[in-house]
Structure formats: C-alpha cells, structure tokens
C-alpha cells in the first residue's frame, strides 16, 4: 500500500505558493482543516483563492487568513458570520464569488469526477444566471455551470489510515469528501491516524486514491458557533 503519511501541518503546506487556488472543507466552523490553517498563517504567502462554503469568523478559521490579507478571492455560498470579510468585500480589497450552495458542491464534485460542466435549475432568473448558457429540458429552464478544480485541497477527517483512506464524523463531513477528489494535491488532516488495514473498508467514506498527504492533527478546538441547548 502506498504510504501517504507526512510529519505535520507545517510540512503539509510548505510548498503552497502565493497565488495558489485552494479548497478548504467545512461548513461554518465544523470540519474545517484547523491545523493546516494555523500552518498557513506561519507562511509568508498571499494572493490565495479559496473555495470554501463559508469564510470562517473574525478570529477563527479562514477569518484568520483574511485578517492577515493572505486571500485575494473567496468562492463561497454564505459569508454572514464574518465582519472582516464583509468590510474587505465592501471596500473592494477582496474579490468574492457567491455561488448557490448546491451549485458550489456540484462544481466541486464535477471537478473531482472529470465532468467539465452540468446544468442546474438553481439561479435561473437571478443575477447568478448572468452570462451563462440557459437551456430547456422537459419544459424547465436550467443554466450551465462548470467544474472547479484546485491546486491543493485541504480537508479534515475524523479517522484516516496511512493509505489516505478517510472516515468523517457527523455533519463535519460536508464538503470534505468532494474537495478531496477535486484537488491536484489533497492534504488530509485527521484526528486519529492508523496504519493501513485497521479501518474497515466497508466504512470508509473517501478512498485514499484522492489523498496525497495525510497527518494526524493536534489540539483541535472545534469551536461551536451557535451553542443551542434543550432545557429539559
């Protein structure tokens, strides 16, 4: 079995250059590659384009990269929790493509699956459709969207093995599996790394073929955005 294991986050991101096109898994702060983001903050690079459903919060996740002015462009679906993001966007310092969440997911999936374009109903009749090919199928209008592929995709899983196979936990799965496949180099950080053969092949969510580097992360904060509890 091919061994994908590397030392740590610092080694994982050491060759990401300025201007790189990145994908980062996560929904809100759930399932984000915390260790890789910390390691990127130590690098002297900028001009990054990042595909991520959200843009973190002001003092955590991608918000930290924004604050250090390392990001040129975000490609996201919802950015409502980040005041610094909104400030940079309205002042023109940051470019942003806001994309319907399902379209974002499918563009990433298509990138990993070798499908250059597809048709979706999402956004027909809205400003999202501007400049896009519209076609009718069975009496309904659809617009064409193209794939997304990245230089590096940074994903976070619960468990992984030395062959790069990944298992996710809860709703921390979200964009991680599809982004793994859409990156030329996929860097996976996991909470628990085991030797190949220890994960049940029946239970693996992301096959290791998509993963080029894997390491065991540490000190996961897993910050909760909306701490909602039942009284009873």
């Amino acid at each position: 079995m091919i061994n994908k294991v590397i030392q740590d986050a610092r080694e994982a991101v050491k060759d990401i250059p300025s201007g790189a096109f990145l994908m980062m898994g996560g929904f809100g702060l759930s399932g984000i590659p915390e260790n890789c983001i910390s390691a990127l903050l130590e690098r002297d690079i900028n001009g990054l384009t990042i595909v991520s459903n959200n843009a973190g919060v002001d003092d955590f996740g991608i918000g930290l990269l924004l604050k250090k002015k390392m990001v040129k462009k975000m490609i996201s679906s919802y950015v409502g929790e980040n005041a610094e993001f909104e400030r940079q966007l309205l002042s023109g310092e940051l470019e942003v493509d806001l994309i319907p969440q399902g379209t974002l997911a499918e563009r990433v999936r298509a990138g990993g699956a070798g499908i250059p374009a597809f048709f979706t109903p999402a956004g027909v009749g809205t400003e999202v459709a501007e400049g896009k090919e519209i076609r009718e199928f069975d009496g309904k209008l659809y617009l064409m969207e193209s794939w997304l592929r990245a230089d590096f995709s940074l994903v976070k899983a619960w468990k992984g093995d030395s062959a790069g196979n990944l298992i996710f936990k809860g709703t921390a799965r979200n964009f991680n599996p599809i982004m793994a496949a859409a990156g030329k180099v996929c860097i996976a950080e996991v909470e628990e790394l085991v030797p190949a053969g220890e994960l049940d092949p029946n239970q693996i969510h992301t096959p290791g073929i998509y993963v080029q580097r894997i390491f065991e992360g540490k000190d996961y904060e897993k910050r909760v955005e909306q701490r909602t509890i039942s009284k009873s």
């Binding site: 806001l98 969440q101 956004g123 027909v124």
Partner: peptide, 17 residues
C-alpha cells in the same frame, strides 16, 4: 446591494427545486 452581502447559501437550490 451595497449594504448586506451574506450570500444565498442553499436557498437558490432549494427554491429552484
């Protein structure tokens, strides 16, 4: 426009489908 830029999240996919 010019005031609030939060994004559409999944709303466009949901209402189109």
């Amino acid at each position: 426009p010019g005031k609030m830029v939060k994004g559409m999240g999944g709303a466009m996919d949901l209402v189109a489908s």
